[in-house]
Design a protein around this nucleic acid. Structure first.
Length: 576
RNA sequence: CGGGGCGUGGCGCAGCCUGGUAGCGCUCCUGCUUUGGGAGCAGGAAGUCGGAGGUUCAAAUCCUCUCGCCCCGACCA
């Protein structure tokens, strides 16, 4: 490609709308332009990068036995009503009416459409297993789009759906996708990690997220220092074992004691006021859960995990109560809630089970209680893992230490089970002639987000440092003196030779000063830069520089194409 | 939806408090000089100051409403 004939508008200045580095660089390097909030144009260079990710995705999906198809963006409301998600998906689902006043939506995902297709066409175990995928534009009307390509409303997604006759087959399909995803992100040149995750609104029983490791990631992830356990913070299990029964006799229940705590509300304030440690206090949190109100108890030094709470309760939604509701339920302003005397369902974290003679709120303004004990002073309806893991916790699998990090979710795979096939009657006849629901899995990759994550992970002060497999161009050639025929001809020759080899080459044939060409080449992040100038051509040499390295080297002009080609191969090999 | 911030040539911003000729840097165009890390000089183009209403002799500036965008939170792949 000739820069002069291409459409690659770069900016020197950082657009004020962009906060994170990948967003800034994608705008500056001319990869994307915003149309409106959360909706972007992919400019030609950005599209090239997108297409390269798609190509890797296709190759690995096909290799795993999946089959590509393409489903519509526009979907009828009936299917969503049938699955129940017309209500449940909420305002993120962009709805509209067509001219006949029929409700429709723009697909944020395609479980309904694919399940409908499969139930109509697949009726026998002989047609299973099958895994169908597409690369298609999705629309999710995000409450708050942000960070450029990271959280858009309209975005390109690869989504795959597997259909199996039995649980064992479904597990196999899941593992195939797990492997394929590892291959895809490795081949994109990314540093990533598969972590256990919550299933969210897609539903299902089990899932992994593929996280590109980056400081600016929206998700917190934890991983074990010894074994291969890794999980999203919101999912990470807390290791809990009942401790040995205390036989020392120190566990005697003391009489309950009221303490005046004027305007002392937070855990910090209460523990300081009473000279106790947070481990001696139980936090009582009031939640709204599908119309019910419940109380959740965690130890003072622990944080409630709403997702775990939601899963323990088996409800679709939990919401921390507002001050009005707290006052109504406990009879006291926020900060003085306690479990004793509450006429509510009470759930508690495992750690609370071990506690004796602890402090809670007194359900009265400016009152706390000392020496509160379970059973005697209140009953817990349900115990469970309710708290967020902390750095001092042990790995839930092997018991060794864990570490915290941040990641960008670029892929997510789910074991769906029969959630959709049962509600939508996607059934098949097994070998015995018995009718059964098909067992499903679904598997997504954010294509644009993968490009953004790659930039987030690979950049410096000058701009992007693209991993070569997803770079818009593999090689950029800079003829510095456009009026020197010697320079121009040498550059053209290398350009033609490399292009004929099938490499993606950009030649910066603009009549611009050298500095501008260097700056743009660095900004765009092309892995290999070849500079031709009168200075080095005098001695028959051209300069080759790897974007990711600081040193450049001189190579003889006559060997240039061969050496560059070898370097391209070397860069690819370093990734595989 | 709650909190905060911002809308002024393509981009980045000043001007607003205290109303009175719409400015700066970059970009863009022309010419000359320059030419290995975002050149210099000279000339030039480009803005209904987000929109609507109001106050006023006079509004980018003050008031009211409204639309859009960004950030934090809630929420969510």
């Amino acid at each position: 490609m000739r820069y002069s004939k291409f459409f690659l508008p770069t900016h020197r200045e950082v657009p004020s709308e962009a906060e994170i580095i990948s967003h800034q660089l994608m705008l500056r390097a001319g990869l994307i332009r915003k149309l409106t909030s959360g909706i972007y144009n992919y400019l030609p260079a950005g599209l090239r990068s997108i297409r390269k990710v798609e190509k890797i995705v296709r190759e690995e999906m096909n290799r795993a036995g999946a089959i590509e198809l393409l489903m519509p963006a526009v979907q009828p409301a009936e299917l969503w009503q049938e699955s129940g998600r017309w209500e449940y998906y909420g305002r993120e689902l962009l709805r509209f009416k067509d001219r006949h006043n029929h409700d429709a939506c723009l697909g944020p995902t395609h479980e309904e459409v694919i399940t409908d297709l499969v139930r109509k066409e697949i009726h026998s175990y002989k047609q299973l297993p099958i895994n169908l995928y597409q690369i298609q534009t999705k629309f999710r009307d995000e409450i708050r789009p942000r960070f450029g390509m990271m959280r858009c409303r309209e975005f390109i997604m690869k989504d795959a759906y597997s259909f199996d006759a039995d649980e064992k087959g479904a597990e196999k399909s899941y593992e195939l996708m797990y492997e394929a995803y590892n291959n895809i992100f490795r081949r994109c040149g990314l540093e990533f990690r598969a972590v256990e995750a919550d299933t969210g609104s897609i539903g299902g029983s089990f899932s992994h997220e593929f996280m590109v490791l980056a400081k600016t990631g929206e998700d917190q992830i934890i991983n074990c220092s010894k074994c291969d356990y890794a999980a999203n913070l919101e999912k990470a299990e807390v290791k809990w074992e009942p401790s040995e029964p205390d036989t020392s006799g120190d566990d005697k229940m003391e009489p309950i004691e009221k303490v005046e705590t004027p305007n002392i509300k937070t855990v910090e304030e209460v523990t300081a006021f009473l000279s106790i440690s947070p481990e001696q206090l139980v936090k009582t949190l009031i939640f709204r859960s599908n119309g019910d109100v419940i109380a959740a108890l965690v130890r003072g030094d622990h944080e409630i995990n709403e997702i775990k709470l939601k899963n323990l309760l088996g409800t679709e939604q939990v919401e921390l109560a507002d001050s009005e509701l707290v006052t109504e339920i406990t009879g006291a302003p926020m900060g003085f809630a306690g479990p004793s005397g509450l006429k509510l369902k009470i759930v508690a974290d495992h750690a609370v089970k071990e506690m004796k003679n602890f402090v809670t709120g007194g359900n009265k303004q400016d009152l706390h209680l000392r020496n509160v004990n379970m059973e005697r002073d209140f009953q817990v309806d349900l115990f469970g893992d309710l708290r967020t893991i902390t750095p001092s916790d042990a790995c839930p699998r092997c018991g060794n230490g864990i570490s915290f990090g941040r990641g960008i979710e670029v892929g997510h795979i789910f074991k769906l089970g029969t959630k959709y096939s049962e509600t939508m009657d996607a059934l098949f006849l097994d070998q015995q002639g018995a009718e059964k629901p098909i067992i499903m899995g679904c598997y997504g990759i954010g294509v644009g987000r993968t490009v953004a994550a790659a930039i987030e992970q690979n950049h410096d002060d000058e701009g992007i440092i693209f991993p070569i497999p997803i770079a818009p161009f593999e090689v950029v050639i800079l003829p510095l003196q456009m009026h020197e025929t010697e320079v121009l001809e040498a550059a053209e020759k290398i350009y033609e030779e490399l292009s004929e080899e099938g490499l993606d080459v950009l030649i910066d044939d603009r009549d611009m000063r050298a500095g501008i060409k260097f700056k743009d080449a660095d900004l765009i992040g092309t892995p290999i830069r070849v500079t031709l100038g009168t200075r080095n051509l005098k001695t028959g040499q051209v300069e080759m520089k790897i974007r990711a390295e600081s040193e450049s080297l001189l190579i003889p002009l006559q060997d240039a194409s061969r050496v560059i080609k070898e370097k391209v191969k070397e860069l690819y090999d370093s990734i595989k």
